[in-house]
């Protein structure tokens, strides 16, 4: 039995919105209503133009593994029984970067440059995370 997952428990409104979308099965990211620049992690201001007007748009979910590692012990208690596991940084088509894991793929086959797509996955009861799998 693994320790419970570390759970996002934010207080910032934008963070709450992101995770509520994921809980509803959607990966949405913020897009500036004035200049169209996407941003992630969520935040109230567009760094490109200073605008506070933004929309939550559905991400395509497609991207490329930008960086990748296979993690061995020691690590967080929740992941101790899962080692070795792969962790990645994915560059989404929209140009933003997200940290994640690649499912349905042996850890040592996850590689930088690999095309992936998002899969919202319930990792334990009541917790859905945006994970990735190799694009078909």
């Amino acid at each position: 039995m693994s320790a419970a997952y570390p759970r996002p428990d934010p207080v910032a409104e934008d963070d709450l919105r992101f995770w509520a979308n994921v809980a509803a099965g959607e990966l949405r990211i913020q897009r500036c209503a004035d200049c169209g620049t996407h941003r992630h992690p969520p935040r109230p201001i567009c760094a490109a133009c200073g605008s506070t007007a933004g929309d939550w748009v559905p991400a395509s979910g497609r991207g490329e593994v930008w960086a990748s590692t296979v993690i061995h012990p020691p690590t967080l208690a929740a992941f101790a029984s899962r080692t070795p596991y792969a962790a990645v940084v994915v560059r989404l088509e929209e140009g933003v970067f997200v940290v994640g894991n690649v499912v349905d793929c042996p850890p040592d086959e996850v590689a930088v440059g690999m095309p992936v797509e998002v899969t919202i996955t319930e990792v334990e009861p009541g917790l859905r995370l945006p994970l990735f799998r190799a694009s078909r």
Binding site: A3, A4, Y5, P6, R7, P8, D9, P10, V11, D15, W19, P41, I71, T75, L76, A78, F79, R82, Y85, A87, V98, V99, G100, N101, V123, L127, L129, L131
Partner: peptide, 14 residues
């Protein structure tokens, strides 16, 4: 295991 700050974007993925 309750993540408030920027760790919420890293820790859930180990």
């Amino acid at each position: 295991d309750r993540l408030r700050d920027s760790r919420q974007w890293h820790h859930p993925f180990g």
